[in-house]
Amino acid sequence: MTLTAPVITRTAAAARAADVWKVYGSGEAQVVALRDVSVELERGRFTAIMGPSGSGKSTLMHCLAGLDAVTRGDVFVGDTKVTGLSDAGLTKLRREKVGFIFQQFNLLPTLTAEENILLPLAIAGRKPDRAWFQTVIDTVGLGDRLGHRPSQLSGGQQQRVACARALVSRPEVIFADEPTGNLDSRAGNEILTFLRRSVIEYGQTIVMVTHDANAASYADRVVFLADGRIVSSLDDPTADTVLDMLKAAAG
């Protein structure tokens, strides 16, 4: 373990974890979810985090996004040190630097698709950039559905609204938690294609947790976790190489 304190520097990393430990409970019931994890997620790239159930992949993402506090170590989003931020600081971070896409879509049923997409900006009191909004809408292909309520949309359409919502505020990094977990494969592939396009065309940084090798194959890089440790990583993955790697990790 290095003793030099991590100096805040402008790096290429959109988010990074340094020597992060996450321990739940204490004594007999203690569960170590993350053991000394250090990882850098490069700016403008699409990173997938994979691993079997209980490997700590979701915990890692939650810690990186500031949704969960780490037990030890430090987490940065851009040049903001997330560790130790107050609730107000975390709120600011979420408004300015982070976007989320969830497995359950999590749209507000009382708002239309358009209002859902613009919600983060409205909450932050920022004016939407109309041209960018239009670009995002075109990318996810929702033009004719903007006035609909979530209950009037299919699962795939709802998730596209959620993607647009994450993209519209141009966050430093978008965290996607099993974004295709609740979708059929066609709708899932559509979503992954949008995510991929937003990385290539707009330089958006995306971190995605998934257990689906096909989904991971859309990423630039896959990080594998097992028992709370990073065991390996893979650049430019395909579904086959990811599967091989998973087998190796499991073995």
Binding site: L67, A88, T91, E96, N106, L108, P120
Partner: peptide, 16 residues
């Protein structure tokens, strides 16, 4: 509950 979590995740403060 889930909606409350969501609005917080997209940046609504406690005061909000």
């Amino acid at each position: 509950t889930r909606e409350l979590g969501l609005v917080r995740a997209v940046g609504l403060s406690r005061g909000g």
